[in-house]
Computed example of a mutant assay.
Amino acid sequence: MKDHQKHFEKVWKTVSEEKQKMDAATDSRIWRRIEGTIRRYHQRKYSWMTVAAILVPLFGMLFFYKDFDLKSKETKNTFPTLVLQTNEVSKTFRLSDNSVITLEPCSKLSLDKNFGKKYRNVKFQGKGFFSIEKDKSKPFIVDAGDFKVEVLGTKFLVDEKSEEKKYNCLRVK
């Protein structure tokens, strides 16, 4: 409690105990101060509750929006819709952009559902031969984990399984 509140409380108790009478002006002044203090306390309490009622949901929305935005980016980048995979034998696949991919045994190529529309990005594990259709506006990007290969149109071999983690570009005549 503040000093003036303690003073008013002391005066009030003293007067009550001694059964003294105060003049009307002093009594009115004391009551106005007490009521004003109580009113300010309630207003301050109401103000803090209002601020909390606004800020708590706001921070909650920002937190969840940020988390949701990160999850949606992760979904776009890490969850392919088409997985081409080989087990014990090599297989050849033709992609929607007419590129031809031959995957060696135990290899895996992952494509995004929007492959070829804006980007030609793929994720690759294993060993494979790529014959990429030429498109200067959309480079073909192979993400092989430790390295990436970006081409506009050519033939090349990617060996992500080897210790060197290499790719060889083949001359096209």
Results as ranks from 00 to 15, higher is better:
residue 2 K to V: 11
residue 11 V to Y: 06
residue 13 K to W: 06
residue 13 K to N: 13
residue 14 T to E: 13
residue 15 V to T: 06
residue 16 S to M: 03
residue 17 E to V: 14
residue 17 E to T: 15
residue 17 E to M: 12
residue 18 E to D: 05
residue 19 K to P: 02
residue 21 K to H: 06
residue 22 M to Y: 01
residue 27 D to P: 00
residue 27 D to N: 05
residue 29 R to M: 12
residue 30 I to F: 02
residue 35 E to S: 08
residue 36 G to R: 10
residue 37 T to D: 15
residue 37 T to V: 15
residue 39 R to F: 03
residue 40 R to M: 13
residue 40 R to Q: 11
residue 41 Y to I: 09
residue 42 H to W: 10
residue 43 Q to N: 05
residue 44 R to L: 09
residue 45 K to A: 10
residue 45 K to Y: 13
residue 46 Y to T: 10
residue 46 Y to P: 00
residue 47 S to W: 13
residue 49 M to A: 08
residue 49 M to H: 05
residue 49 M to C: 01
residue 50 T to P: 00
residue 53 A to V: 04
residue 53 A to F: 04
residue 56 V to I: 15
residue 57 P to K: 01
residue 59 F to H: 03
residue 60 G to L: 11
residue 62 L to R: 03
residue 63 F to G: 09
residue 66 K to T: 12
residue 67 D to E: 14
residue 67 D to I: 04
residue 68 F to G: 09
residue 73 K to P: 00
residue 74 E to Q: 09
residue 75 T to W: 08
residue 76 K to T: 15
residue 77 N to P: 01
residue 80 P to V: 13
residue 80 P to E: 10
residue 80 P to T: 10
residue 84 L to S: 07
residue 86 T to D: 06
residue 87 N to P: 02
residue 87 N to L: 10
residue 89 V to N: 10
residue 89 V to R: 09
residue 89 V to F: 06
residue 90 S to Q: 09
residue 92 T to N: 04
residue 92 T to W: 03
residue 93 F to M: 07
residue 94 R to C: 03
residue 94 R to V: 15
residue 94 R to A: 08
residue 95 L to R: 02
residue 96 S to V: 15
residue 96 S to H: 08
residue 98 N to T: 11
residue 99 S to Y: 03
residue 100 V to S: 05
residue 103 L to E: 04
residue 103 L to N: 05
residue 103 L to G: 03
residue 104 E to H: 11
residue 104 E to V: 02
residue 105 P to F: 06
residue 105 P to H: 08
residue 107 S to A: 12
residue 108 K to P: 07
residue 110 S to P: 00
residue 110 S to G: 03
residue 111 L to S: 09
residue 112 D to P: 00
residue 112 D to H: 07
residue 113 K to T: 14
residue 113 K to R: 14
residue 114 N to C: 00
residue 114 N to Q: 08
residue 115 F to V: 10
residue 115 F to T: 12
residue 116 G to F: 03
residue 117 K to W: 01
residue 117 K to Q: 06
residue 119 Y to N: 12
residue 120 R to S: 09
residue 121 N to K: 11
residue 121 N to C: 01
residue 122 V to K: 05
residue 123 K to C: 02
residue 125 Q to C: 02
residue 128 G to M: 01
residue 129 F to W: 11
residue 130 F to M: 01
residue 132 I to S: 01
residue 133 E to I: 00
residue 133 E to Y: 03
residue 134 K to S: 04
residue 134 K to C: 00
residue 134 K to R: 08
residue 135 D to R: 00
residue 137 S to Y: 03
residue 138 K to S: 02
residue 140 F to M: 02
residue 142 V to W: 07
residue 142 V to Y: 06
residue 142 V to N: 08
residue 144 A to F: 08
residue 145 G to R: 07
residue 145 G to V: 04
residue 146 D to N: 14
residue 146 D to F: 04
residue 147 F to S: 10
residue 147 F to M: 14
residue 149 V to A: 05
residue 150 E to M: 12
residue 151 V to Q: 05
residue 152 L to R: 04
residue 152 L to W: 02
residue 153 G to Y: 03
residue 153 G to F: 02
residue 155 K to T: 14
residue 158 V to A: 05
residue 158 V to D: 09
residue 159 D to L: 09
residue 159 D to I: 10
residue 160 E to W: 07
residue 160 E to F: 04
residue 160 E to L: 01
residue 162 S to V: 01
residue 163 E to G: 06
residue 166 K to S: 12
residue 166 K to D: 05
residue 167 Y to E: 08
residue 167 Y to S: 06
residue 167 Y to L: 08
residue 170 L to F: 08
residue 170 L to C: 01
residue 171 R to K: 13
residue 172 V to T: 15
